[in-house]
């Protein structure tokens, strides 16, 4: 375990600076979150070329639409993921159209695009990212509770932590993750 600087404060600070038009904030956000955006896009689209296009689009859109970022909604990561979902959907639509045009030329039946469509990938990867980013001991408690599916008693014993503290970390942590997903939804459904 190691102690982090408070990542929430840093992230909120970045958000504020981006909204204020600070290009360096965009650069810092790119440094932190382009792997998250790229991995989601790669998962969803399958090719590096398309995934990197999406990364480009997401960060350009983030810059142009920076006024829609809400620093009070926590880390900009969720906001970026919401934008990413939009862009991934755009690429899929374009692929579908291209596919349909080819199909039409060949007078064949139009079918759904072939890419596997797991719409939850973006959210899952965001939560993985959030758990990685979250400071200990909360991150460890949440990993043990959610991913290893251990009971709160187990966790309290293994981490030598009062049961009430474990429960409190689980509650706060789950609420925090829920808020991240709500932010994705807010942006993606806009």
């Amino acid at each position: 375990m190691h102690v982090h600087d408070d990542p929430d404060v840093e992230s909120a600070e970045l958000a504020v600076r981006l909204v204020g038009g600070d290009r360096e904030a965009l650069a810092e956000m790119y440094r932190r979150w382009s792997p998250l955006v790229h991995t989601i896009a790669l998962r969803a689209l399958g090719t590096r070329e398309d995934a990197e296009d999406v990364v480009q689009q997401v960060f350009v859109a983030a810059w142009r639409g920076r006024a829609t970022l809400r620093p009070d909604r926590g880390s900009p990561a969720a906001w970026l993921v919401g934008i990413t979902k939009h862009r991934v959907a755009d690429v899929r639509t374009q692929r579908y159209r291209a596919h349909r045009n080819l199909q039409a030329l060949a007078s064949e039946v139009v079918t759904e695009p072939t890419t596997t469509h797991d719409s939850d990938w973006a959210e899952r990867l965001l939560l993985v990212h959030e758990l990685e980013r979250m400071g200990d001991p909360r991150a460890t408690v949440l990993r043990m509770a959610f991913i290893e599916d251990r009971t709160h008693d187990d966790i309290a014993r293994m981490l030598q932590m009062p049961l009430g503290t474990v429960k409190s970390h689980v509650r706060r942590g789950l609420l925090e993750l829920r808020d991240r997903l709500k932010e994705v939804e807010r942006v993606a459904s806009d």
Partner: peptide, 27 residues
């Protein structure tokens, strides 16, 4: 509950993949 479902379970997940350095220049 949805949050819990999405955060739970083994993730078939290979690791973060950063985009090519050139992408930032394009941005």
């Amino acid at each position: 509950r949805r949050t819990l479902r999405l955060a739970s379970g083994p993730l078939a997940y290979a690791g973060w993949q950063a985009p090519d350095d050139a992408v930032w220049a394009r941005v």
